[in-house]
Design a protein around this nucleic acid. Structure first.
Lengths: 211, 211
DNA sequence: GTTGAAATTAGTACGAA
DNA sequence: TTCGTACTAATTTCAAC
């Protein structure tokens, strides 16, 4: 089990603490970027790449860890090689006032790699990795459907994972959005009809409170 | 850019090689599990936890890396702390025969953390992390809508990331599915109406070929 | 916040089981 | 293959600046 808090905030920090604990400067950001692409780099090498002293690098490294800005270090596994060749997304509609139960049941399903609460038609999206399609079917019909909190599910299979980036930081964003434009002038000749934003369903705002 | 191949297979291996390069035994699996929860553990400590010699651990560690079973080591960042507090899922319908262009454009969008091709109503799901909701709007209307390959989009926001596990390996699965049951007897008194599996749309099978 | 030197640990090589 | 040991290189810690 590894529950992470609202939008990932205060991952490793002391529970109950709200707000920022550490003001992240450019050097912190650079450290995070490097650690995202190489989580096993030594702090000494990190210091050299960032252009700071080793002691400084150790201090900042520990601060980032303690603050929760770095949640954990992990190895990305090739699931196919590991015997889990099937990935599926299951969109779940959850009965109101039953989120606590839903989350508890999720914790008991090791096949679930990721779960997010979303706006839109469904309430949650879970990503599962299993060895074969039969296991997806079993997962949905045996386990999910038996949870009273689950009102309905919709399952799609992932045919290909095109992209998985560890480089998502504000410094990347700046490069792609050098100028902040007004939506009106930016849209120009774009056919707006092909876009759709889906907000939360009625009464959804209350759903997070009892989770 | 970090393109990963079909369902993540042969991630770091030599291109063009098909099939398994390394038979993964229980010891390999145990190593993968430990590295998923602690990507910065020393090989010496790894050897001790697995119960093998250091030399053996180094050999296996390198083999897993070279084989591509371990794709990379990375630090999981708290995106809120890093200034990217908004996460959204954008479901994209892609015009057939234009996947190559779509993928090329994706590579130029640093906000995109993950992209998968799926069955179901839409063709792809992309996950983006940005600093504010305006950036999502800008992303969808300015950038995605201007891609000819994009026929339509549907955007939902992630309100909370409940779970992100690094423990998805067959050994977990075995614990949760100790007995392989037939679907019929397994379903029992489950209301089947609430589940829905969504296959690929017509003509979708051809989509991956020109990607 | 930086540098440098001591203590510790990591990584490599190689022979034996 | 795997293990154990010895050897070399690098990292981390700590102290002074």
């Amino acid at each position: 089990m590894s529950e992470i808090s609202r939008n990932g905030a205060s991952g490793g920090g002391p529970p109950g603490r709200i707000g920022i604990g550490l003001e992240l400067d450019d050097v912190h950001m650079k450290i995070l970027e490097i650690l995202r692409e190489n989580g096993r780099i030594s702090v000494a090498a990190l210091a050299e790449r960032v252009g700071i002293s080793r002691a400084n690098a150790y201090t900042r490294f520990e601060a980032l860890r303690a603050d929760g800005a770095i949640k954990r270090f992990t190895a990305e596994i090739d699931h196919v090689r590991a015997g889990l060749g099937i990935t599926a997304l299951i969109f779940v509609t959850v009965r109101q006032q039953m989120w606590k139960q839903f989350r508890a049941e999720l914790a008991r399903m090791p096949e679930v790699e990721y779960c997010a609460i979303t706006t839109g038609q469904h309430d949650a999206m879970i990503q599962v990795r299993v060895s074969d399609v039969a296991a997806v079917h079993s997962m949905v019909t045996d386990r999910l459907a038996n949870i009273p909190a689950v009102k309905a599910t919709e399952t799609v299979f992932i045919l290909d994972e095109v992209l998985r980036r560890p480089y998502v930081l504000p410094s990347d964003r700046d490069a792609s959005r050098p100028v902040r434009r007004m939506p009106q002038e930016a849209q120009g000749d774009v056919p707006l009809g092909k876009m759709r934003f889906v907000g939360a369903a009625e009464g959804r705002a209350a759903l997070r409170k009892d989770g």
